[in-house]
Design a protein around this nucleic acid. Structure first.
Lengths: 142, 142
DNA sequence: GTAGGGATACTCGGATAATGGGTGTCCGAGTTGACAAGG
DNA sequence: CCTTGTCAACTCGGACACCCATTATCCGAGTATCCCTAC
């Protein structure tokens, strides 16, 4: 029961996109430098985010990634589902007919509760503090 | 983000203990046969449950495992923590001071919500149906 | 001045390790009860 | 009848191997922009 590091990177990346002015495009190098991780690995995560429709990519020179339109109300759950998939986190291996396992019922309920909460938490909640953080990092006090 | 199979086995095992009359002792062979898995692997899980204080073990002949006293109100969270540990499921690897990561705050909050829910669901809720299930399996209709 | 042809700066996708944890097995050690033999 | 030794059943713990997902890297392909040169 652990979230993958890729989810962590994806959340930070999406937070940058939400915090920056709408329409800003960022390249892999910039994003990787901000989180100090390898650009090649981050690109894999970005393609997942693209396929999930959270961001859009423009190839070629001056290309990069942009927040998909009307995605300012992005939730934590959207990002997590894009990376980890939407499959259930608990599966009873017993040979019972489809979903006769009582334990599985409870675990699925718990999962739904968790997803409901994560769907309510939006990335934009953290945008204000993040933009401030980015500005301080970009131009340090003289 | 997936629960281990060991957690599944542990939950089923604990459910058997709760459903059966208080004081019943079960050996590894019986428990493994009920879930049709290898006894040697199940013993590993059982030792974890013993160390967590959920069950007690009596060595020697006619030995086995018994539900620890006054544990009838066992929750799902107790079992999960015994197997998966109590460590947080999300850890921000960034070099920020202790817990300055805003994303980590949200994820920890979500985790607390999930744990609160799982702490409220008790194993005994499923006991009635499980005992019925066990009786049918033990003595099939003539 | 305009068109064409590189060069460049990106994204995209596949192939390929390395690593670690979950899963499962094997074996020896320690402990207790049952049983039988001998005094 | 009592003691004692042996055996069997069972838990406990460590060591070991296997499998698979995660993590990470490298390289070639495709694509758009820029710049430089030739006409």
């Amino acid at each position: 029961m652990k979230y993958s590091q890729a989810t962590n990177y994806a959340l930070h990346t999406m937070l940058y996109f939400v915090a920056l002015p709408s329409g800003t495009t960022l390249g892999v190098q910039r994003l990787a430098a901000l989180q100090s991780l390898s650009p090649t690995y981050l690109s894999k995560i970005l393609t997942k985010l693209v396929k999930a429709g959270l961001i859009e990519s423009t190839p070629g020179a001056h290309g990069g990634y942009t927040l998909a339109k009307n995605n300012s109300e992005l939730s934590f759950l959207d990002v997590i589902h894009a990376i980890e998939g939407t499959a259930s986190s608990f599966h009873c291996g017993a040979g019972l007919p489809h979903d006769a396992c009582l334990i599985q019922h409870v675990m699925r309920d718990a999962e739904r509760h968790l997803e409901s909460y994560l769907n309510g938490r939006k990335l934009i909640e953290l945008a204000a503090q993040t933009t401030q953080w980015l500005n301080e990092a970009e131009q340090p006090p003289a």
